[in-house]
Amino acid sequence: MALTQVSSNKCCGGYQKVFEHDSSELKCKMKFGIYLPPKAESGKCPVFYWLSGLTCTEQNFITKAGSQQAASEHGIIIVAPDTSPRGCNIEGEDESWDFGTGAGFYVDATQDPWKTNYRMYSYVTEELPRLINSNFPADPEKMSVSGHSMGGHGALICALKNPGKYKAYDATVLAASYSGPELDILIDQGRDDQFLSSSQLLPDNLISACSEKKIPVVFRLQQGYDHSYYFVFSFINDHIKHHAKYLNA
């Protein structure tokens, strides 16, 4: 479980780093971005896991979302993993943008040839937190998960399948059934999202399911915004603050 530092840049008083390691779950080399706030130099900090969307790598979020400012302010470590195993030489993994490489969907595959490598759910909920907690000044009791697009869905799945594991959740899409400790889910959705208008996203289903199950969700339909990282950039502060409320409680 040796970590190799790929890059390190000072940012907002802390450091934005990228590490590479050999994943036991995914059986390949994996990269993740990690932002260490100034507070991490003197003590343990809660960790905020960010799950990116389709086609993304660990780079998209750390270069485009501008999350470091709020993370620095609230003293939160942000971990942004890659979205799928890479270089596994599985037939057809690079054929489609929404399946295979860059499209792990944060689930554990159950069929060959995928089930050996495509274990993103186990990776983000088990292996990666273990790795982070043992190598960085992270508070293992305080973690939360969030994401965009496919990552948002992933975050919801992680949260709903692991009652009590994550302190706060939010996502941009999808439905759930849940029983466990009270959640507090914040969802922002761009009103001009091309996937919303093409009915690939079904927020009403999620809202009615959550209403029925009394899962607290605040769903904000943001006028004029689309699916891009400009949208993520615009609301990331609200989300980090939302998480900070629980992580720093």
């Binding site: 009103r191 809202i207 009394k214 899962i215 605040v218 769903f219 904000r220 339909l221």
Partner: peptide, 8 residues
């Protein structure tokens, strides 16, 4: 008004 849905 902002467009906000609240489930609970």
């Amino acid at each position: 008004s902002a467009d906000v849905r609240i489930t609970v």
